[in-house]
Write a protein that binds this DNA or RNA. Sequence first.
DNA 1: TTCAAATCTGTAATAATAACAAAATAATGG
DNA 2: CCATTATTTTGTTATTATTACAGATTTGAA
Lengths: 144, 144
Amino acid sequence: MENKNKIEESGYDRLIKCGIRPSVQRLAVMNYLMENRIHPTVDKIFNDLYPTMPTLSRTTVYNTLKLLVESGAAIMLTIDERNTRFDAETKPHTHFMCYKCGTVTDLNINPPVLKGNYIDDCEILNSELYLYGHCPECVNKNKN
Amino acid sequence: MENKNKIEESGYDRLIKCGIRPSVQRLAVMNYLMENRIHPTVDKIFNDLYPTMPTLSRTTVYNTLKLLVESGAAIMLTIDERNTRFDAETKPHTHFMCYKCGTVTDLNINPPVLKGNYIDDCEILNSELYLYGHCPECVNKNKN
DNA sequence: TTCAAATCTGTAATAATAACAAAATAATGG
DNA sequence: CCATTATTTTGTTATTATTACAGATTTGAA
């Protein structure tokens, strides 16, 4: 995996490659996801973009994320029961969520790559490996 | 994996083993999950139990499922973005959801067993492998 | 049998997401 | 460059899953 916190490709290039017209709003969301590998929720994205884009609508963030996922420019994670989260890294990798602080991070462990195979006659198009537990920060916090 | 559609243990025994007092409602939900390995949503469980238990409350189903998961008598799946789903099979196994019909099934492929390990200093307590694609029924439906 | 604890129930509140229609913006053809 | 059309964005409203809560019921123990 490359740099943990940033993807070395421009948001513009990613949108074009995925056949998405690069409006200001779409670029903002795409760039946000590529520069902030924190698996943000819709609310996090909206709140972080809003100060510099005061006309931005929450609906646009929803619409844009839906478009990004459908076009393969990002993936949606259901690791968090409460909110859907989004990631600009579309290559298979493993996600972890801390039960205590709720943070979602990437883990350096390869998930099984099953896309394209048939298993029990099911055609596999996508897969996600989700791990849950305690992150280093929360593990240390409880040592006292 | 044993019989695909039923778990060979009584709901009563499972509740006792997990330290849960076996009320009528809890038994009904536990038995339903053990006899119907369909990874049902809360609504599905409620609607299926309601005819034979007309005093049952949806809130009780929510409360009971929460208790079952916390006590280790069942697991919660977040494979489906829209609804949480539940499974009485608590041993690690792989889940599949069909993009077309939404059905969730078990797959005969072993997930990586990582519980108890530390990965990147994260203490792993649980893991889920979710696969997505087209189930045999929906694959065949489109062959025409 | 009585009292306290546990459980269940129904309603009301919350919060995430989707539907929709009007306004704004961008693209196209003359 | 203007007029028309298509696309995108926006804000409001609706929907739906889930949670909070308080009163009613049931259970268990003394």
